[in-house]
Design a protein around this nucleic acid. Structure first.
Lengths: 109, 109
DNA sequence: TATATATATGTTCTACTTTTCATATGAAAA
DNA sequence: TTTTCATATGAAAAGTAGAACATATATATA
């Protein structure tokens, strides 16, 4: 279908940004730390051992891409995972990696 | 479950590489050019207007991640998309982008 | 086997992204 | 309202990956 091609074409930028948002250790660790429920920035710091400002910078990027949602509670700010899309996405990629990326897995173990 | 957490942990490296492989314009364009069937390197060059060595370098990365599969035919080498995983993956992300990344889409239009 | 065509590889240069550090803002408690 | 704790922002430094160019290999054909 032609229209879907045009769509694909002008969506490249968005794809690139989307994948770029997931292509760093720090942001993947942050996402992982959120898998069992929302956490505020300090809790994320305790969980990941990352510096505070690094966490803020990277949460901002994740938020911009709709991968996490913030909610202020008093002086804390809680972030929760977008379970609707991120969780199934990671599941799909799990399957891909297991099937097609054996070498990579060995390298990272 | 604990075991899945450990798995997630030592798979971070693979995730990072996986997403990194999709986080550039050139590789996304190459994947897109392959959506309607296999193409050899020259044909990819004609379709994308990228320089030959750039295409080879990037195909190598895509191949390493199991996103495309090569097949030699005479002096040509054809690459085909891994439809099993890449296509549904892109579809999932389409949905995410449309729903959560309106601002990004506007920026890239 | 010499030549032409197709693809791959190695290396350097450049641009971009992440991290870090310093500082600012925001919210609550004393 | 001053102090303290939580988070955000800005800018400079450090690290990394992509692009470009030159060259090498592979396959075919004359």
């Amino acid at each position: 279908m032609q229209s879907s091609e045009h769509k694909m074409e002008h969506m490249h930028g968005a794809y690139k940004l989307f994948f770029g948002a997931l292509a760093t250790d720090s942001r993947l660790h942050l996402l992982n730390a959120l898998r069992h429920g929302p956490k505020n920035v300090s809790e994320l710091g305790a969980a990941t051992r990352y510096e505070q400002s690094l966490i803020s910078h990277n949460l901002k990027i994740l938020e911009y891409h709709g991968m996490v949602f913030p909610e202020r509670r008093g002086k804390f700010k809680y972030y929760r995972l977008n379970d609707q899309t991120i969780t199934p996405l990671l599941r799909l990629i799990d399957a891909h990696i297991k099937k097609y990326c054996c070498k990579i897995l060995e390298g990272t173990r």
